[in-house]
Design a protein around this nucleic acid. Structure first.
Lengths: 229, 229
DNA sequence: CTGAAGTTGATTGCATGCAATTTATCGAGA
DNA sequence: TCTCGATAAATTGCATGCAATCAACTTCAG
């Protein structure tokens, strides 16, 4: 019943909650977000919701139409190209730095992520729950990349990469990947090769493999895009 | 007297206004921002001010302390290093792309920016108005970089670069540069060389010169930082 | 049946109000 | 004088209220 008092600091929670729901596709691309609805779901007033939505617009996740509200931005074909181009640059550098600085614990997490991707291939082949598969994809592939940026030791690189993933969510790739165990297997293979290059402290190979990997995933994703506007 | 009605869409205006005042140092690094004060200055209520401040925090310009408000983030030594490292990567790529794609009009603007930097050197030598010099610096050096990103034709590159410049404003460099016409002359020289390489469509040289330039400015800036925490 | 004009309902954009929290002020005791 | 504690002032965080706006629907002329 929302004690009339305060202190909860609810804006951050709303921002994260909405951001997650957008990232995993629960709120679809292009979907409108109604302040009153979100407010009711979280038992708060519209004020903190409005604050959270403004934050999400500021980082490029939402689009605001004056007097109409906010909706989830739909990245254009061109925007996806550009974002991936930048990610290639950033991850290429990150993986090279990671090859020089990675710790044993981080290497284990990298290998665990690859193992989880293999597990995911089995899940798909066995016709497992699509919901669970999507969640597993987000976790595993996300963890793989996050670990690399963490190992690179440049938090700006990490932050920018996160921002780009919010703009062009991994869910877009997943929709293309969902019914294609072959491509998923290839992704797992390439991740394993990248991890191996990092393990060998071979910065050059790691960078080349990463750039090639990102381009391959990009081309695959773009080829399976709903409407090639 | 602020018609009791609506439609003004004042949040965006506030965000830009505050962002500018922070970028040009009118609101100092570490300075607190009082919602009631800003609201009074703009003849609006605290609500849109709060929205604007949340936006600025979301993009890393402000820092929020719960129940205490927002203050301008003071980038740490390490953060400056990291931001510059990423800028080096982005601008290196941008300048290489620009060398392949730049238009004649953009080249003219690039050369104009260099000429304005030379003009600025004279202003400093002649003991001109520091305010005007600072503004000129922002315009000229900012225009130089913006033109390069524009010529590169990747708006994500541009957007990320802008975000990084809001995090570590050019004003920090200017404070170090203000009393050093020699370094400023060197900057103008290097910008001229970069522009010449672009003009020659020499992507490799342009990139190398840019990386070297950014590192030189970084080292100079860091060496003149107020408190080397 | 089509299209312009008026009406209703949903929704945003901002103002205002109030409790919670923090900071500043001030006085008493060591 | 310095410190501790209580009280007052400043400030945030959120709730609520209402006018402005837009979409959808209705109505009516042609």
């Amino acid at each position: 019943m929302a004690e009339s008092g305060h202190t909860p600091q609810v804006v951050e929670e709303l921002t994260i909650s909405l951001g997650d729901r957008i990232a995993n596709g629960e709120i679809p691309l292009g979907g409108w977000i109604r302040q009153a609805k979100v407010a009711a779901e979280h038992n708060v007033s519209r004020t903190p919701v409005s604050l959270a939505l403004n934050r999400l617009e500021a980082i490029g996740v939402l689009e605001r139409v004056p007097n109409r509200g906010f909706r989830v931005r739909v990245p254009s074909y061109r925007e996806i190209m550009e974002v991936v181009e930048v990610r290639e640059l950033l991850e290429g550098r990150a993986v090279a730095l990671a090859a020089e600085r990675i710790t044993e614990a981080q290497l284990r997490r990298l290998r665990d992520s690859v193992a989880e991707l293999r597990e995911l291939v089995r899940m798909i082949r066995d016709g497992g729950d699509p919901e669970a598969a999507a969640a597993q994809w987000q976790r595993s592939y996300g963890s793989f990349h996050r670990t690399i940026f963490e190992a690179a030791g440049n938090s700006q690189l990490q932050g920018i990469s996160d921002a780009l993933y919010r703009k062009v969510p991994r869910g877009i790739t997943w929709r293309a990947l969902q019914n294609d165990p072959r491509m998923l297997t290839r992704i797992a293979d390439e991740c394993e090769h990248i991890a191996a290059a990092i393990d060998n402290r071979d910065a050059i190979s790691a960078q080349e493999l990463t750039v090639a990997h990102i381009e391959a995933v990009r081309d695959f994703t773009l080829a399976h895009l709903p409407s090639p506007d």
